[in-house]
Design a binder for these strands. Structure first.
Length: 714
DNA sequence: CCGGGGTCCATTTTT
DNA sequence: TGGACCCCGG
């Protein structure tokens, strides 16, 4: 029980409180993972349950992996076997394999990725005569996702909810989509949970089975659960009531994905007799960083409220720096990093955390110039890459010939002379006869509808597939994969490719093949890839990390750079437009998450001008900068009033640049007393013109100071 | 059927 | 600015 001594009183309380519902409100850096892992070790040590009787849910696969390692560390190094640990999706998927027949699937169902979802929806929408330019499959997919987040099956979506999208046909599309998935023996991400909820609700015996199995349930990042996840958990926990959830309402940043902060705010009501334990002692950041983060989050109305106390000293002040443009910002960050390096800070202890991934490029380019080693996290995932998806499609067709989406994907990859018109003919035939694409091909190579050349190509391809399929049982699957990629000439296609990225693709394919060796069968590998596999990142190397603030949740670094704190970008205009105050508060939580990643130092910056869509756009500093308490920051700006910035030749490229754009050319009509329109504040009257800044009395919002580029004369 | 060149559009955030 | 899509000529 030595491990208990390493805990502070509230942590220890959370670890020892094993029975009944428990909510641990764990602020950033308060040892949340330590509590979860120690608690698990404690259960095992007291023989309260076997590993197989414990269900642990994490938000990411990375978190699951970390937890696994830390628990085995606590248990003396031996890996814990049989423990139900993973993301909601991975765990629900595992359950669904056992009971797929109850929702009309067979246990070898495929999990289709978002790209397949969109292609499927595109077909269905075109069949329904919907203008997919106006109503894109992408938006349709996200509508369906949001419904699934809320556990709404097609019959539960009301007409009102369905809305005007796709001329009100969206529910019908949703229904058709679900039925198509069933035909394809496939599931999307949301279905994994939704199907399990349906099964639990309609088959008490199955639920009973899981009730008997799981004596303890633990959930990480509870503030980011959605309705479906909540329902799934509640169904599983309703018998034993031994559910422990850990979370921080101030770090809820996935509302846009259907997460409900309400879940954590309501926990006490949902689980009667729930105990609440707060962890407020922070072991990660300096007091200055915490004070800064607190200053921001304090502006939010809806929160449970807590105050973090640093167990470290006051520390350095937070550097807040204003710059002319994105270019200058990247240069400044580069300089700061070089200074940190001189102070022996390791690159791997430095991170750039951005609001949106398009902001990463500027830093990447600058780092290349300076020779600063970096890695970008959160680009396309390993399994999202084209070559990986292609390779997997081949394997999917081998494993499941009727996987139409996979077959369509690789039918003409590499190029075999099977173009659009051929594929269309095949599809028409398949649809007309209610058979799969694969079967349609088998039939049509006997007929005369297709040209002889295409018939021959298809016939050869089918023979190849038959051959590969016959090898499944007697060839190790990594070897089979290698054979498939060679025989199909897919590998050769990339080897012959002269483009820069082709070589990397070949390497990725090799990596894919070698990764397969860790799995006992092709199907189990395919499952892993769909749900778990992430870009392999080598933590070992000493590189600066560039990632989004969302991606940084749960991580920590000595020094953190937070660039582009500009109105419209952060907080994001779109979020505010779509979700109003709720959206703004989520942005604020994101700022809180970003800041609290830092242990020792934080650098916040904003640029007055930034290239967006190839256009110069002027931005004013984020309101979050103003929310930072004065006494913990060191504020500085390179943006000065224009005249002082002109050199003897009358030239200042930077100053010039900052004023290029819609500002100068189009706004000459602005004058005191003139009427203007502003995206966020509406219409108003100009009171004062001060350079490129305007004081305006807005009809609805009162007097504000805004940049000229933000308004239009009306 | 394929590739080149033009046009149009867009950027959050992710299991 | 650059990636996705479309139309046209080989």
């Amino acid at each position: 029980m030595e491990y208990l001594n390493a805990l502070n009183p509230s942590q220890r309380q959370a670890v020892e409180q094993l029975d009944g519902p428990l909510l641990v409100l764990a602020g950033a850096g308060t040892g949340k993972t330590r509590v979860l892992t120690t608690r698990l070790a404690h259960i095992l040590n007291l023989y309260k349950a076997m590993p197989a009787e414990i269900l642990s849910v994490t938000f990411t696969n990375k978190a699951a992996l970390e937890m696994k390692e830390r628990v085995s560390g606590l248990m003396g190094g031996a890996p814990v076997e049989g423990w139900w640990l993973g993301t909601f999706h991975a765990l629900a998927g595992r359950m669904l394999r056992q009971h797929a027949d109850l929702v009309g699937l067979s246990s070898n169902y495929t999990i289709i990725d978002p790209d397949d979802v969109q292609r499927l929806l595109k077909q269905l929408m075109m069949d329904a005569g919907i203008d997919i330019k106006k109503y894109t499959p992408k938006i349709a997919a996200s509508l369906i996702d949001r419904w699934k987040d809320r556990a709404l099956t097609p019959d539960k979506v009301t007409a009102e909810e369905s809305g005007d999208f796709a001329a009100g046909k969206m529910v019908a599309i949703y229904r058709a989509y679900q039925s198509r998935l069933r035909t394809l023996n496939a599931c999307d991400f949301g279905d994994l949970l939704l199907h399990m909820i349906t099964i639990f609700q309609t088959n008490p015996d199955v639920l009973e089975k899981f009730h008997k199995r799981f004596k303890y349930i633990m959930v990480d990042e509870y503030q980011d659960t959605n309705v479906a996840q909540y329902l799934w958990l509640r169904l599983l926990a309703q018998k034993s009531k031994n559910i422990c959830v850990v979370g921080d309402d101030d770090q809820s940043i996935y509302g846009w994905r259907g997460a409900e902060v309400g879940n954590i705010l309501r926990f006490e009501k949902d689980f009667e007799g729930a105990k609440i334990i707060r962890l407020e002692e922070n072991y990660r950041s300096t007091q200055n960083i915490l004070t800064a983060a607190d200053g921001i989050i304090d502006n939010n109305e809806s929160r449970l409220g807590k105050t973090l106390r640093s167990q470290k000293g006051e520390g350095e002040k937070i550097i807040v720096h204003g710059l002319w443009d994105g270019d200058a910002e990247a240069r400044w960050v580069g300089e700061q990093i070089e200074q940190l390096q001189r102070k022996q800070v390791k690159n791997s202890e430095i991170a750039i955390l951005v609001r949106a991934s398009f902001l990463m490029r500027e830093f990447e380019e600058r780092f290349i110039t300076l020779g600063i080693p970096y890695r970008i996290i959160g680009g396309p995932r390993f399994y999202e890459r084209m070559e990986i998806r292609d390779a997997l499609a081949y394997m999917r067709v081998v494993a499941q010939p009727h996987d139409d989406l996979a077959l369509e994907r690789i039918l003409n990859t590499p190029k075999r002379g099977l173009g659009n018109s051929t594929v269309q003919k095949l599809y028409d035939f398949a649809r007309g006869n209610g058979i799969s694409l694969y079967d349609a091909i088998l039939t049509m190579i006997e007929g005369t509808t297709l040209k002889p050349k295409q018939r021959e190509t298809l016939s050869n391809l089918m023979q190849q597939f038959e051959g590969w399929r016959n090898s499944v049982d007697n060839t190790p699957h990594p070897e089979l994969a290698s054979i498939i990629l060679d025989d199909s000439l897919y590998m050769d296609m990339w080897k012959a490719d002269k483009s820069i990225e082709a070589q990397g693709r070949v390497e990725n394919l090799r990596e894919l093949i070698s990764a397969m060796a860790d799995f006992e069968s092709l199907p189990s590998f395919l499952e892993h890839v769909a749900l778990v596999m992430e870009a392999s990142l080598d933590n070992s190397q000493d590189k600066v990390t560039i990632m989004t603030m969302h991606g940084a949740k749960g991580l920590e670094f000595d020094c953190v750079f937070l660039p582009a704190w500009e109105e419209g970008l952060f907080p994001s205009q779109r979020t505010m437009d779509e979700n109003g105050l709720k959206g703004l508060e989520e942005e604020r939580r994101l700022a809180y998450v970003g800041l609290t990643r830092a242990r020792e130092c934080a650098f916040i910056s904003n640029a007055a001008s930034r290239r967006t869509y190839g256009q110069w756009v002027n931005n004013i500093p984020s309101r979050f900068i103003e929310e930072l308490p004065e006494d913990v920051i060191e504020k500085d700006s390179e943006i000065q009033v224009r005249s002082s910035h002109w050199d003897s030749s009358g030239h200042n490229p930077m100053a010039n640049r900052a004023f290029i754009g819609k500002t100068t050319e189009s706004q000459s009509g602005l004058k005191v007393g003139g009427r203007v329109f502003h995206n966020a504040f509406g219409e108003g009257t100009i009171l004062v013109i001060d350079g490129n800044k305007l004081d305006i009395v807005f009809d609805a919002q009162g007097r504000k100071r805004v940049l000229e580029s933000f308004v239009e004369a009306v």
